[in-house]
Design a protein around this nucleic acid. Sequence first.
DNA 1: AACGCGGGGAC
DNA 2: GTCCCAGCGTT
Length: 357
Amino acid sequence: MEKQFTSILMKWHKQTNTREMPWKGEPDPYKIWLSEVILQQTRVAQGWQYYTNFIKKYPTITQLARAKDQDVFKLWEGLGYYNRCKNLLFTARQIVNERKGIFPDQYEDILALKGIGPYTAAAIASFAYNLPFAVVDGNVFRVLSRFFGIAEAIDSSRGKALFTEIAGKVLSKKEAGLYNQAIMDFGAVVCKPFSPSCHKCPLQKHCVAFRDGRVNQLPVKEKTLQRKHRWLYYFLFEHDNKLLVHQRTGKDIWQNLFEFYLVESDAGVVWDDKSVKNWLKEQVGISKANLLYVSPLSVQQLTHQQIKGQFIRVRLAAVPVFLKKYQWQPVGSLRKLPFPKFIIQHLESPFLQKSLF
DNA sequence: AACGCGGGGAC
DNA sequence: GTCCCAGCGTT
């Protein structure tokens, strides 16, 4: 069955597959690496523009390594999972400083780099050097679990080990790069998560899940995620045409991105002018403030959290002592800083644009 | 082994 | 609303 799978898949790839992507057939390991990091847990359509932007601004790993953190994060803004960006920069600088800018060409050396796990290492090794390592990503889990009718959970250790083993068996070792491209394209174009195109699938005849009518039951996941609810109230403190900003640190969401003065609470409250004025006076000791606006409620759904909150813009006659330690950013250059989408949405909202006049 | 990390699109 | 996406690092 394994031989059949591989040969049919490769034939499909060479004869039928018309999927185009800017990094396809790319020989430069730097560009392959960049595309793979961008695409971690990210749809091709979403990552596409980010890839072309990065290549345009940083055509070589040396140029990326020499860039300022803030500029690179700005280019990554909106793509999510910002630790990828941090590791991308770290690894670019490491390769430039310690390896003269030359990307490693052995699987183990590639895997050892920060931000590169088993999937990305196999992708780079096979695409750049045609080394015989099989990628195991969401597409591969789905295609293999359906074709071989395997109900082992893909988010368990046993499942991961099992699918990795099978992936290695069906890999075309002579055309590893082509094969890896083939199975991922196939998973994205034919063997899709929802409404797969079984009616025109070249593997249908040998597909166990199709035979048993289990296509929509595979692959199996065992974990169900809980979504945390959070309430974030951002105060846009303004003084002398500058806004208070703050770079997020710690282990929480949006590490390294900027934000405004944050008040977080567990209980959902919707502020209005009156309650904000009272809070500023009673809790913060600001009495001579010009309250410019209290925004309507903003909502953002993330995979692991639901964020709700408001934006409150306050013009200060003077900077209170407890706010002096913060960074004050000129309003005109505010957008040079990387912000989370939750904040970008507000900065671009018609509400804000209107309320400034 | 379990958990946390963004954002968007399809249903 | 739920699920998933060219996964990874940390604990």
